[in-house]
Design a protein around this nucleic acid. Structure first.
Lengths: 208, 208
DNA sequence: CGGAGAGTTGAGAAACCTCAAAGCAGGTGG
DNA sequence: CCACCTGCTTTGAGGTTTCTCAACTCTCCG
């Protein structure tokens, strides 16, 4: 347990807009978010960007870098944040001694794979309304799990970042928000979202 | 080493169309493909399917199931295949004793995460021609790495399966193949593909 | 030789994107 | 403390890509 504490004792803070790491940098540590909000993104050579995820407190980032010892994406703070740095070689050493830690690490990596499958589903076979509904429900569920309101929250990311994540243009995201509002599903005031009809929003994702 | 051999001694064969596992089944083992070809797919409740990957010899499948002890997708043989079953609890036990095995496992899981990121990029920000070009180049590279021709190969999957993987309809896949052929990039005869201009095909993905 | 599944091609419709203009909000410097 | 500036958001109109529906062809088996 002392060892576990030691493993998570390295804390650092980041201002909004600061990079936690950049694509290509040498990999040494995973990062656990304590407070704040991050995005991860892959940049294509021609300037196109793909946001690959939005991370909240309690989530681990950097797993993609293990396979090549170099980060394969950027991680950027979307608001002032605090993270724990977890040196990966020490995590591996410790997980050889603690089977429960080993299993936990494997589950975290596996969960990331499952999360990515869900995004593939979203990008590959849903239309704009379904994608945005799925996105909002995912945020709702994650805020809820952290003790915040599942129906009322503040978006830390721009329309363009949402669009990049969902494979849509920012105008389409904006229009879809307006569309949901017209139909009484949401109240949106720029980044402040209030879900008015969670049930109907869910039905968008599962059947329509 | 004896232990490693024991770990991979469970072999099974599958006929084309047979399921290696199905979504929801209890998770016990990872599977290493020895010969053959598989696809993995997620089925949505309303019948939509999303192909999440095509797997070749040497690749490991089942990693998604670790996090919940249940498979989150189906794995189906696309041709007669042979696999090694790797009981996961024994793999974990052994990897606690062999740091190099532990590291290897982590790299495999991380590589899967990176692969998924690449697909997100593809689905989120590429158009049909770019997607198909990227897909073909990926196959080319993987066949090449296994000692087969990088320019001439047989597709084990249907147009619909390619389309599902790439987030396109089968007609669009078919048209895009024809389009590539008209422009002298490929020769396609149904499932037999010959890449005529690898360079130009690459330029499709990186810049156009 | 016949049937079933897979693939190709065409025409029209729908979804989404592009370009453009205008409105808003938040931060900064005077 | 206010005015301005910048970046973000909204909304509209028209264009493009991809989808849908349909017909036809091909290939592989039995």
């Amino acid at each position: 347990m002392q060892q576990l504490d030691a493993l998570t004792s390295l804390k650092r803070t980041f201002r909004r807009g600061e990079y936690l790491y950049r694509c290509g940098e040498h990999f040494q540590s995973l990062f656990a978010i304590r407070t704040g909000f991050f995005k991860t993104q892959v940049l294509h050579e021609d300037g196109r960007e793909q946001v690959t995820g939005f991370q909240m407190p309690g989530e681990i980032i950097g797993l993609d870098a293990i396979c090549t010892d170099a980060h394969t994406c950027d991680a950027v703070a979307l608001e002032d944040s605090e993270i724990c740095e977890i040196p990966f070689d020490r995590l591996e050493t410790l997980s050889r001694e603690l089977p429960s830690l080993q299993r936990h690490l494997h589950k975290i990596m596996s969960r990331e794979i499952v999360r990515d499958q869900g995004i593939m589903m979203l990008l590959g076979s849903m239309r704009a309304e379904e994608r945005l509904a799925a996105f909002l429900l995912n945020l709702s569920q994650r805020f809820s799990a952290r003790g915040y309101s599942p129906t009322s929250f503040y978006l830390r990311m721009t329309r363009q970042e949402i669009g990049s994540y969902l494979g849509l243009k920012l105008e389409t995201v904006s229009r879809t928000f307006s569309h949901f509002q017209e139909h009484g599903l949401l109240n949106v005031r720029v980044r402040e979202v209030e879900i008015m009809d969670l049930i109907r929003l869910r039905s968008f994702v599962s059947h329509t």
